[in-house]
């Protein structure tokens, strides 16, 4: 084995330590500024933005007795399930469709116009219609999440397939690969990096529309916490829900990056 692959872009260990020190310092400074402006300095009214104490209090209330009809764990589970279902559905439908459009001009001619027509409509603009179709239940929200995550997945799969180096396809053909082998052995692996770029965008889109969908109508979930907390003028509760969305979003992105590293080990 010719040495393990390096991961450039991370630089020398010393530079890396320096960078994490800067990142950590910035987080500490932000937390300090938060504490000072909302607490001792009294620059910001706690109704507009919670102090760390308010946020902690809200978090405690959420975890043990619960708030807005459920405990934090239940709300998170609800939101995660919606994101998970929508994202998986978008992956399973968007990627094959993108690959189909990328490898067949005919399929592109049929599908692309519909796609171009639907794409400018913001996914949240579908919410009213989906409520009429599916009611306020899970199905409506999964549908909207799927809709938001679908286009980045499909478009990137399409772009990935279209940008496969033609010399690699030629190399496969002159070494005896059939059309099917060219697709499975060359086109799909070559497009994987672009496909994953699409999935990262999809995942972000999932979180964005999820909260919007839950704001409109739901019985649990992080968006539901926010809408109830607005009624209660509880800024601490809103803050906790937002922080949960941020942390979960980061956690899922990290998980996706792990999957990518496993699926695309040859990437420099």
């Amino acid at each position: 084995m010719a040495g393990s692959p390096r991961s450039p872009g991370r630089g020398a260990p010393r530079a890396r330590v320096q960078r994490s020190a800067v990142a950590a310092g910035l987080v500490v400074a932000l937390l300090a500024a938060w504490y000072l402006t909302t607490g001792p300095l009294e620059l910001v009214n706690s109704l507009q933005f919670p102090s760390p104490d308010d946020a902690y209090e809200a978090l405690r209330q959420l975890t043990s007795p619960g708030y807005a009809g459920a405990t934090l764990a239940r709300h998170i589970a609800d939101s995660l399930a919606l994101v998970g279902l929508g994202f998986v559905a978008a992956t399973l439908t968007g990627i094959p469709l993108g690959i189909l459009m990328g490898s067949s001009r005919l399929a592109e001619a049929y599908i692309n116009p519909v796609f171009q027509l639907i794409r400018p409509i913001a996914p949240i603009a579908w919410i009213p219609l989906t409520i009429l179709w599916f009611g306020l239940g899970t199905a409506a929200k999964v549908f909207v999440v799927w809709l938001a995550a679908f286009s980045p997945a499909a478009i990137n799969a399409f772009t990935g397939v279209r940008n496969v180096d033609p010399v690699l396809i030629a190399a496969a053909r002159v070494h005896g690969a059939s059309a099917r082998q060219v697709l499975s052995q060359v086109v799909i692996p070559a497009s994987l990096p672009t496909i994953f770029t699409g999935l990262r965008v999809s995942l972000q889109a999932c979180w964005m529309v999820l909260v919007a969908a839950e704001l409109v109508g739901s019985f649990a979930g992080l968006g539901h916490i926010m809408i109830i907390a607005t009624r209660d003028l509880n800024s601490g509760m809103i803050f906790v829900a937002m922080a949960c969305v941020a942390l979960l979003g980061v956690a899922l992105s990290v998980a996706l990056a792990w999957v990518e590293r496993w699926a695309v080990p040859w990437r420099r």
Binding site: D165, L168, A170, A171, A172, Q185, V186, P189, A190, W266
Partner: peptide, 8 residues
């Protein structure tokens, strides 16, 4: 351009 498959 060699045209090796980078994932293999």
């Amino acid at each position: 351009q060699f045209a090796l498959f980078p994932w293999k």
